[in-house]
Design a binder for these strands. Structure first.
Lengths: 343, 343
DNA sequence: CTTTAGCACTCAGAGGATCAGAGTGCTAAA
DNA sequence: TTTAGCACTCTGATCCTCTGAGTGCTAAAG
C-alpha cells in the first residue's frame, strides 16, 4: 500500500526538517533549493512539496506560508533521514566526570543524572530510577539512635538504599536490636515482595521472641512499602524551565500544561520505553496519546546498573527538536553512565 | 525626617495595593474611591496619590495610567496595612495530613514540604533542609552487603540520615565490620565537623587495628563531606513552572532568568532569613540585591525539627503577590509542620 | 514525461493613522 | 480643604494599507 518515497522526496523532506529545526519558521521552496545545493529548481521542489503534503509528511500553516513537517514527517526523518550527530571529544566527558563523584549514592545519582542530561541537551529531562525484575531486600539493618528510636535501613538487590526513622512506644535494648537485626536478615532477605506475608512474620516472631515484633512489623511494612515504591518507578523531572527556551512554548498556558502533565503522571506508561531492538525510543508530537504532549516529543533511553537493574533517562522538548544531536548526547551519556556503574 | 503618613493616605495606599494585587492593572483614582466606600471624591484621591507618588510609595507607568505600588509602597503595606488573612478550616489540614505519612524520611520530607507549599500558594516554593548549629554525627553504621562492599550509614544529630555505598579493594569479614562499627561509634560520634582530624583517625586505628583503616578513612571522609554538605544547606525549588501563572512573567526571558537565578545560587545568603523577631520575612522587589529578583518578592519562614534544627520554607512570586494570603498559609503550614515533627 | 520559467493569486504580518476612553493635573468655586 | 469641571495626555484597540514571501497553475522547453 504505502509506496516508498523517491530519493529526491526524501532529500527534500530532510532539508525541510533540518531547516525547520534551525529556524522554527515554515520552510519555503526557495530555502530548500538553497539547502540542497543541487541544481534543482524551486518550481520542481514546489511540486514535490505539494506531493509530500498530500502524503501527510508536511503541513501548511496557511496558504502562502512555507511547509512544516508533520509528526509523520519527523518520524521518517528520525527513522531514516537524519545525519548521525558526531559528538565532539569533550561534550559528555565533563558531565560524566563530575557524576562519578556521586557514585556512592545511587538515589542521588538518579536525579543528578537527570540534571546533567537537561544541561547537556538544554531541555527538560526525565529520569526514572533503576529497577530490576523481582526486586527484593538484600540486607536489613536496624540502627538504634536513642532509647526508643531506631533507623531502619534496607539495601535492595539493585543497591538502592532506603531508610526511615521509627519512634517506638517503648525503650529497646542493644540486645533486642541485635535480635531484630538477625531475625530480619535471616527470614526476610532476598524474598520478592509478594511473598512478604504475615505467615513469615509470625514464624520469625516465634523463633526470635515476641518483644521485637513491633520492629519486625515496622520493618516489613517499610520494606514492602519501599519495594512497592520502587515498582512504581517515580519520575523525576529536571530543568523544567528550560522548556521556555523554545518559542513554541512561549504562549502562556502551554509550557505549564506540558510540565504539569509530566509531573502529575506517576506511571511511566506514557513514556516511549526503550528495549533491546530500540535502545533509543522517540515519540513524536501526535504520536503521544496524552493531549498536552501532542506538540512535544520525548526521547528515552536506558542505562544499566551493576546489579543489572535498568534505569531510564530521557528528554522532553518541542516537536521541532534537534533529534540527531539530542539523541546522540542522551545515548552517549547513558552509555557512559552504564560503563561507570559497571566498572 | 520621615513623616508618618496620614491615616487617609495609608487607606488609599492600601486600597491601591489591594486592587493591584487583584487586577494586575494600574489603579486609578476612581477605582480607589469605589474600593474605599467612604464619601471621598476622586479629585481628593488624585491629590493624595500625587503626594504618595512624590513620597515614593507609588509609581506611574506613564501619564494617564493609574498608579502602581513601588517596593516601598508594598513594604508599608506588608508591615502595617494589610488585612490579616484568616485561614479557612481545611486549607492547610489536608496538606499536613498527607505529609505526616512521610514523617519517617526527613530528607524526603523536605522536598515534599516544598511541593506542598508550592501547591498551597500556587507559586514556586523554596525549601532548605533543617540544620542545627554544631551538627555532628550521632551514629555510624557499617553494613556489609557482600564480600567487599559495604554501605555506610550515618545519622546526624538532627536526624538526617545519609548513606553511601563503598566498594573496597579487599574482602571484609563480619568481625572486621563489627570492629569498624565499634571504632566509629566510639571515637567519632557527637564530634563537630571541625574536629574530625587525622589525629583522631590515627588514634582509632591504634586501638582497633590497622586492617579496618580503609573503612575508617572512608567513613570519616564521608562524614565530613556529609556534614559540609549539610552546612551548605541546599536549596530545593519546587513547582517552578507555577511562576507562569503570573502574567508579569510571560515575557520570554523573564521567568527563566528568575528560576535559573534561584536554582544556581547555592548559598542561602540571598534569601530573607527569618529570626525570632521576624518569624516571617518578606523581601520585596528592588529590596533584592540580585538583578533578576528585582521584580519578584520572596517570603521565607522557618520550622523546627524535634532535634531543634531549623529548616526554611518559602515562596517566590511576583511583587504583586497576595502577601496576606500567601504568608498566612506559609506560616501556618510551617507551624503545623513543626508541631508534627515535635509531637 | 519531467523540469522549469513565468505569472497571477493569496495571505500574514508590519507599519501607519485614527479614535475612544481612562486617567491625570490644574483651576476655581464651595 | 475638598470637590467639580475641564483641558490635556497617552495607551491600546481597531482598521487599513501594503509589502513580500510563498504558493499553484500553465505553458514552454528539455
Amino acid at each position: 500500500m504505502k509506496l516508498e518515497l523517491s530519493e529526491r522526496k526524501k532529500q527534500i523532506l530532510k532539508a525541510i526538517v533540518d531547516d525547520y529545526i534551525q529556524t522554527a519558521e515554515p520552510v519555503g521552496s526557495k530555502a530548500v533549493t538553497l539547502r540542497l545545493n543541487t541544481n534543482i529548481s524551486s518550481a520542481t521542489v514546489r511540486n514535490e512539496m505539494a506531493e509530500l503534503e498530500r502524503l501527510g509528511y508536511l503541513e501548511q500553516p496557511h496558504t502562502s506560508a512555507g511547509r512544516v513537517p508533520s509528526s509523520l514527517g519527523y518520524r521518517l526523518y528520525v527513522d531514516e533521514l537524519m545525519n548521525r550527530y558526531t559528538l565532539t571529544r569533550h561534550e559528555i566527558e565533563d558531565a560524566v566526570q563530575s557524576i562519578s563523584l556521586r557514585m556512592g549514592e545511587l538515589d542521588r545519582l538518579i536525579t543528578e543524572a537527570g540534571r546533567m542530561v537537561s544541561e547537556l541537551t538544554n531541555q527538560p529531562a526525565i529520569a526514572v530510577s533503576p529497577v530490576s525484575e523481582g526486586e527484593a531486600v538484600r540486607r536489613f539493618e536496624v540502627i538504634r539512635v536513642d532509647e526508643s528510636t531506631v533507623v531502619l535501613v534496607l539495601v535492595t538487590t539493585s543497591d538502592l538504599i532506603k531508610n526511615r526513622i521509627c519512634r517506638l512506644n517503648f525503650p529497646l535494648s542493644d540486645l533486642e536490636v541485635t535480635a531484630a537485626n538477625r531475625a530480619l536478615n535471616a527470614h526476610f532477605t532476598n524474598i520478592p515482595i509478594e511473598e512478604l506475608t504475615d505467615v513469615r512474620i509470625a514464624q520469625a516472631e516465634n523463633e526470635s521472641g515476641m518483644e521485637i515484633s513491633e520492629i519486625l512489623v515496622a520493618a516489613i511494612d517499610f520494606a514492602s512499602e519501599v519495594l512497592h515504591l520502587l515498582m512504581r518507578r517515580d519520575i523525576y523531572l529536571s530543568g523544567a524551565s528550560r522548556i521556555l527556551n523554545y518559542p513554541e512554548f512561549h504562549e502562556p498556558g502551554k509550557a505549564m500544561a506540558l510540565l504539569e502533565c509530566i509531573a502529575d503522571h506517576n506511571t511511566i506508561d506514557f513514556l516511549p520505553l526503550p528495549d533491546e531492538r530500540h535502545p533509543v525510543r522517540i515519540r513524536i508530537g501526535t504520536e503521544n496519546r496524552i493531549a498536552p504532549l501532542r506538540d512535544a516529543s520525548i526521547i528515552m533511553t536506558s542505562y544499566k546498573t551493576a546489579k543489572g537493574a535498568t534505569g531510564l533517562l530521557g528528554v522532553v522538548g518541542p516537536t521541532r527538536m534537534d533529534y540527531a544531536k539530542v539523541s546522540a548526547r542522551l545515548k552517549r551519556f547513558a552509555d557512559e553512565l552504564s560503563d561507570l556503574l559497571n566498572s
